[in-house]
Simulated scan of single mutants.
Amino acid sequence: MKMREGFMVVLVGLAILLYPWICRANNGSRGGDASEATRVVVDQSGNGDFWRIQDAINAVPSGNARQVIISIKPGTYREKIVVPENKPFITLSGTKSSNTIITWSDSGGIFDSPTVSILASDFIGRDLTIQNTFGVGERAVALRVAGDQVAFYRCQFLSYQDTLLDDAGRHYYWNCYIEGGTDFICGDAASLFEKCHVHSISQENGAITAQHRQSGTDDTGYVFLGCKITGVNGSFLGRPWGEYSRVVFAHSYLSSAILPQGWEDWDDQKKHSNVYYGEYKCFGPGANRSERVDWSRSLSDSEAAPFLAKASIGGQGWLRRKRTP
């Protein structure tokens, strides 16, 4: 097994390193084209190129400049995974989220506990479950995303506190399921969550988001567009980790689990004048704004317009048709 995987590391590395010269010889292009990607298979049964996901990632050369699709066969993969900053253009592709599961149990440091850490740019994840099974009591991140131009499709992220550390960069989440209890979508990225299901398992007064924007001139923030927001008990839509925290819910269903006041100030009233917490044409029992805190906003059409398209994350440039599965 070790000899086979060692051979595959060399083979994958050679294929990627030789690709630019092959393209030049054929007047081709380089960089992120899935139609001319290197494809490798991870399979715990031994019928793939690698047994472990991290081994397949390690086989990608530093400074990679083309699409590498790592196809993960069904199974429960018990490993902590890092996609390092110097390995862009990697795709982790499962079969479906219900049977392709990456799991670990860790807690403590927000940067040390993640089951999966994406530090590279131009990453795609699809049809995966990523979970941290530590439970209640400490920070236990399932996924940290700190690369730029990162997208996830049909994935599940499961933990309790700080489930999704949406840390930095521009990110897109489509048709994903995100579950947690305390500040379980947090960080300072510029992210669009479209058609996602966000579910709070907090038993009392948990916050769904803790966005970390630090300046009124920063272009970061979270937009939930056409999403479904549910929970088992009373939850806030968010509270301000950063002084200028920014979160918008638009055209989304808000269940009765959303507390009438909607937002919480993290015991710091000075943030009332700085945060940007907006709602636009949401519906459901939790969307009634009659008892909302007066420092949140009911957005007008013109105020909401910048948040209602992929342009809010510059996505018209990097969410190209060929990148969408």
Score class of each variant (00 low, 15 high):
D49S: 07
R52T: 05
E79C: 07
N58A: 11
I72Q: 01
D55L: 02
I72D: 01
S45P: 06
P61D: 03
S45M: 06
R39N: 10
V40P: 00
A37Q: 09
I81N: 09
A56T: 00
I81Y: 08
V42E: 00
A59Q: 02
G63F: 08
Q44Y: 01
G63A: 05
R66P: 11
N64R: 08
S71N: 14
S62Y: 05
Q44V: 00
A65G: 14
V68G: 11
E36I: 13
P74S: 08
N64V: 08
V40K: 01
A37D: 03
V68C: 13
V60S: 02
S62P: 04
G48E: 06
D49Q: 05
I70W: 09
D43G: 02
V41Y: 04
K80G: 12
Y77C: 05
I72L: 07
Q54W: 05
R78D: 14
A65F: 13
D55H: 08
K80N: 13
V40T: 00
E36P: 07
Q54T: 04
F50S: 03
S71W: 10
N64K: 09
R52F: 10
V42F: 00
G63N: 04
D49H: 12
R39V: 14
S45N: 13
V60I: 11
P74Y: 09
A56S: 07
Y77M: 08
K73H: 12
N58H: 12
R39E: 14
I69K: 11
E36A: 12
S45R: 10
N64G: 04
T76H: 13
N58D: 15
R39S: 10
A37N: 09
V60W: 02
V42H: 00
E79I: 08
G48F: 04
P61T: 01
Q44S: 07
I57W: 05
G48T: 03
S45F: 10
G48Y: 01
K73P: 01
R52C: 07
A56M: 03
V40H: 02
I69N: 14
I53L: 05
W51R: 12
Q67H: 15
Q67S: 15
N47L: 13
P74T: 05
D49T: 03
G75C: 07
I53G: 00
N58S: 10
V60A: 03
G48W: 04
A59F: 03
Y77Q: 05
I72K: 00
N58E: 11
P61M: 01
I70H: 06
T38K: 06
G46E: 04
F50N: 02
D55C: 06
G46T: 04
V41E: 08
Q44E: 09
F50I: 01
Y77W: 12
A56K: 03
S62F: 03
Q67R: 15
G75D: 08
D55T: 10
I57A: 04
I70P: 01
R39A: 07
Q67K: 15
V41T: 11
I70F: 10
D55M: 05
R78H: 14
V41R: 07
